[in-house]
Design a protein around this nucleic acid. Structure first.
Lengths: 231, 231
DNA sequence: CGAACAATTGATCCTCATCAAACCTTGTGG
DNA sequence: CCACAAGGTTTGATGAGGATCAATTGTTCG
């Protein structure tokens, strides 16, 4: 196990204002955990004793209902923090599960340790709060979308959110990697509907679809589906 | 305009750990705003210069999409804080609108003033964070519900949430006050569907419905609709 | 009493979920 | 290197769950 460079933690939005010493402290107290594709960092309902910073790989946060159906809350890419709720509410349990989408490594930090740090470092609470307000806003928006918009538009939005978060620009467009099922869980629909709509878009030349892969050929066109009042 | 008793602010969850002096400071810097039923404290998109504490009345936080359809994010009752986002992100605008459901009074506090207070009073950031994690969890749950559960169950949940938040116990059950439209916006459906389902429940003796009013006769029965795997 | 607003109920339609079957792609092991 | 297995994807057929529209019936209040 190779220790990560503490200063790299500055890329984590919550740590952007931390001193070098703090970063070293945090890195020093962290434990690296590597897991394979498909495995879980934690499950919904587990006691939230650790929070994580993804160092390499990709993961998703998801929630499932009693019947087992699931929804994707967000996708986690490198240097993003997840599972931070425990640092604020002691004794809480994770409200969602975190599953690796590829072989991944994360730095696990004890929730109570960060909790303790926050007592004397106001900037930490503050930056964590900024992150949280962002999540609240995003969830509120997605909630509204789900309640009021039709599927096609929701899929377009999910696609754009993904593109902004983890798309890689190649010639020809923006490249994304995920299954129809993933996209369905992000948009609150089924993989069948996603497949049909992507096929549609492909016929219109908006995207190019493949196995676990979508190339957005015409981002502007997708945006217009996502935003337009559209008749 | 009568000034409120500063010590009453202790009922606000974010202020629960504040000193008496702090409460006086906060109350002293606040402005009381009274508005009538149907009016707005603020609109989605306005600059978030103030945060509010509802002193009397009832209000709702709602968001609307470009086409004008709206969803209810939450209902606000006395001594709850709302519009607090601006204290964290400077220059932000409200992501939702706040409308009074009855004639209401709120204490308006400048966002940057609370922002300043938080710099030197860690407990404030901390308690605000607790509030936020609560919202995040609630929104995540509601999002999942909307994505995976059927209408009837969602309506049952909304009803129970309302009951917990603002129901008044009377003999015969729990009394609630709102329109079908309100409940529809809370559950992500239409007033027609809410009406039909309430009628159903009334036939089964679960509730008693009236104009802008529902009496939950058999809370347990409603819970079983909300929770049960139900065939 | 009448106007305004809330609620009910029926009829109809449309969007999507669901089910089923076949197809494609990728990786594995003989 | 081919064959096969496993998992992802596509597409069609069908149907259910609600949205929408329209008309009527309460209810409240000035």
């Amino acid at each position: 196990m190779m220790k990560i460079d503490p200063l790299k933690l500055r890329q984590v939005s919550v740590f952007q204002n931390a001193t070098d010493e703090d970063l070293k402290l945090i890195a020093g107290h962290g434990i690296e955990r590597s897991i394979e594709e498909g495995e879980f960092f934690f499950f919904q309902g587990d006691p939230a004793d650790y929070l994580y910073v993804l160092i390499s790989g990709r993961a998703k946060l998801m929630q499932n209902n009693p019947a087992g159906q699931q929804v994707n809350l967000r996708t986690i890419s490198e240097w993003q923090m997840f599972g931070a709720l425990g640092a604020v509410r002691e004794g809480a349990s994770y409200p969602a599960s975190a599953q690796a989408l590829e072989n991944s490594t994360a730095l696990a930090i004890r929730s109570d340790y960060l909790h303790e740090l926050m007592q004397t470092r106001p900037y930490l609470s503050f930056d964590l709060m900024k992150l949280m307000t962002g999540y609240i806003q995003e969830m509120q928006e997605r909630y509204r979308e789900l309640a009021t918009e039709k599927v096609e538009r929701r899929i377009a939005r999910s696609l754009l959110r993904l593109a902004a978060q983890m798309g890689t620009k190649s010639e020809g467009g923006i490249e994304l990697t995920f299954t129809r099922q993933d996209l369905a869980e992000m948009s609150g629909t089924t993989l069948y509907t996603v497949s049909r709509i992507l096929s549609d878009w492909e016929r219109q030349g908006l995207v190019e679809a493949g196995r676990e892969r979508v190339l957005i050929r015409n981002p502007h066109g997708v945006v217009s589906i996502a935003e337009e009042l559209h008749e």
